[in-house]
Nucleic acid binder design. Structure first.
Lengths: 149, 149
DNA sequence: CGGGAATCCTTGAGTTTGTCAACCAATGAC
DNA sequence: GTCATTGGTTGACAAACTCAAGGATTCCCG
């Protein structure tokens, strides 16, 4: 009949389900979504520039996120000693703790539990194939990070 | 290591890719995304209430979408003769033509081409499994439509 | 050295995509 | 005939962004 159309609809429904899961989870933790996504990426310390790159968003929005994180006492700006233009966001203890809980949200990925390990692996392989970045390409670059949201 | 986390990241990247594909496509067609999504759902004629339900959005936003569609001459409101509270959105010829082009965007789903038919079927089956609505549930309701965005 | 040019961050204004509360007009229930 | 419900509209607001301009460093290069 119309295979790709059904494809799009099914995937769209999954997207929705996943989005609801995360937005609800973030809300339960009391952080706005952009803060939560940022927290997850800050592993101890990260420059604002780099954070913007990984979030695929404008620098000015990173400023807003950093403000929100500071207001909540989750992170603070520290001017980089080697280059005083750069400001590194470093997690406070509270920020680090919250980050852990956010990671748990990602580990408890909705639906992934319902797939057995081999299915999950097959699914992942097809995902990479769809994105034309083959498994090998992903596996061959251990140090290069490929931001996602 | 952390299977679900990688799962989440890969899926997140796909989401992004798909979103870019559609937003770019809609922009090329000269319609804002909400209008495009609405157009796809209006098959000739649809009540605003029902459109809101399928878009999972508030009634007031449907009003805004309807306004935009009328402004562009893509649809018009017609009071339902059987219940004068109801307003049906009916596509103009231009609206219907545009709808066709939007459907093409969905048929040209990014990445789906890169999967061979059996992979696609397997992928779809896993999608349904993840959403806990089993293939049979989906197959057993041929006339019931299950809106997605 | 010194004067751009580039880089990192911030600010302020604006856009898109929505939600919520309050309302009106038509309908249905009794 | 009232009175509650339903469908739609309006206006105020919020969240998640982007863009253009500017300030502070640092880099480049003659």
């Amino acid at each position: 009949m119309h295979p790709p159309r059904e494809f799009a609809d099914a995937l769209g429904e999954l997207f929705l389900q996943v989005r609801v899961h995360f937005e609800q989870g973030f809300a339960d933790l009391g952080v706005p979504s952009p803060c939560a996504k940022a927290l997850r990426l800050i592993d101890g310390s990260l420059s604002m520039k780099e954070l913007g790159a990984r979030l695929h968003c404008d620098g000015s929005f990173v400023t807003a996120i950093a403000d929100a994180l500071e207001e909540r006492g989750l992170a603070r700006r520290e001017t980089d000693p080697d280059d005083r233009r750069i400001k590194n966001l470093v997690l406070t203890r509270a920020g680090n703790k919250l980050r852990g809980r956010i990671q748990l949200l990602f580990d408890d990925f909705p639906g992934a539990r319902r797939l057995d390990p081999e299915e999950r692996e097959a699914f992942l392989r097809m995902l990479y194939k769809m994105m034309a970045k083959g498994v090998d390409a992903a596996a061959a670059t251990p140090e290069r990070q490929t931001a996602a949201s």
